[in-house]
């Protein structure tokens, strides 16, 4: 065989091999990522979850059944921020006042969550 043909063959084999390997690996990686995302989404939705978070009471809207809390990180739901939450029953917000440092329980199926319990800390 002529040398240039041999070289061409080797190069072609190399390109095809690398390309095939990359495509195979890339496809598997994307599939894996998609499955992971699906699994995460499945884990996050449809199941009742519960968080216990620290925060400060900033405002109370008894007529709306809403309490505004400056809270820490709520894992898998939202980062630390000031935000209004529905309360499960009016009794929940009666025990606290604006400015209280509290530990509250958030419970529900995303995105329908509500504060089910709240207690003063410190």
């Amino acid at each position: 065989m002529r040398a240039w043909k041999a070289v061409l063959l080797i190069d072609l084999a190399l390109i095809v091999g690398v390309g095939w390997g990359y495509a195979f690996w890339g496809l598997r990686a994307t599939r894996f990522q998609r499955e992971l995302a699906e699994a995460q989404a499945a884990a996050a939705s449809g199941i009742e979850r519960q968080w216990v978070v620290d925060g400060v009471v900033r405002a109370i809207f008894p007529e709306l059944g809403v309490i505004v809390l400056t809270h820490g990180d709520i894992e898998g739901y939202m980062p630390a921020m000031t935000m209004g939450f529905r309360v499960a029953s009016p009794r929940v917000q009666e025990s606290v006042a604006v400015g209280d440092a509290v530990r509250f329980t958030l419970k529900g199926v995303l995105p329908n969550v509500a504060v089910t319990a709240i207690e003063k800390i410190k």
Partner: peptide, 19 residues
């Protein structure tokens, strides 16, 4: 440290008050 309480519930203050 009780700054939020002393600002009181009215008007409603949502921005960070440093404690």
């Amino acid at each position: 440290p009780q700054a939020i309480r002393h600002l009181g519930p009215d008007p409603r203050i949502m921005f960070p008050v440093v404690t």
